[in-house]
Amino acid sequence: MKILENHRLIWSRLMVGFCGLSTLLISGLLLLVLGYITLHGLPGANLNFFTRLPAPVGMEGGGLAQAVAGSFILIGLACLIGIPWGIGAGIFLSEVGKDSWWGEGVRFAVDVLSGVPSIITGIFVYSILVVKLQSFSALAGGVALGIIMVPLVARNTEGILQLVPQGLREAALALGLPFWKVILKIILPTAARGIGIGVTLAVAGVAGETAPLFFTSLSNNYWSLGLLEPIASLPMEIFRYATAPFAAWHELAWTGALVLITIVVSGMLLARILLPGYNFRR
């Protein structure tokens, strides 16, 4: 008996230790990545970076002002497309078409969509928008990123809405509220925080996408905010600068990576602080 208990005790300790180690490793990994990028990126994070345009190849100076602005515009466009569409699909999956064959079909489609490599989305938008408009454009980039966001937002919204207690729906309906009002006034506000945090995760996901932008927004060496012109973005510039054979460019790439990560992380933190309501995620 004694031996068996010991055996169980040892096994339990071992497993707890393993869990602890995994936790340490994952937070350690995050710190390591953040620390490494900060270490390399911070020296270049000066005023020039945020105010200047890129210098010609091999020359000193220059910044990535147009890429910072471009990334914001691309992410904004992606949100305009991805958030309403994604949340709408999520509501449908959770509230309307839950058990119907149609709902199952949509759910399957969303799952497949979320598994489509982002570069395929890029080529799709290239062929329907870029080739038709005869130009790379911010619009095409935003559409590609928006399409990538839709399944992420939809599945997350569905999951969060499922967590809203069934009793709330029944109580609201019993009071005579029409179904659409129940969704809009009762269920969505209750789940707002969870949905919002899901959206920031999707934004973080697309903010770093490079492959689809290759085929859609390309890049721009100039300050350009026009939606029908090619537009610069941080991931594209990081890719370009990191693979170039000049040390000064590598530094710009590191700083670009630092700025990108800062934008994403602060977006996530802001959402957690600002969004009202109960977080069903936890």
Partner: peptide, 26 residues
């Protein structure tokens, strides 16, 4: 030719302020 093109473009656009030439080496 990208190093040269980007130098050319920078010089040329200094002389011709109405033109912007965006060359991407892909």
């Amino acid at each position: 030719p990208n190093p040269l093109y980007s130098r050319w473009i920078a010089e040329y656009c200094k002389l011709n302020k109405n033109v912007r030439i965006n060359y991407q080496s892909i």
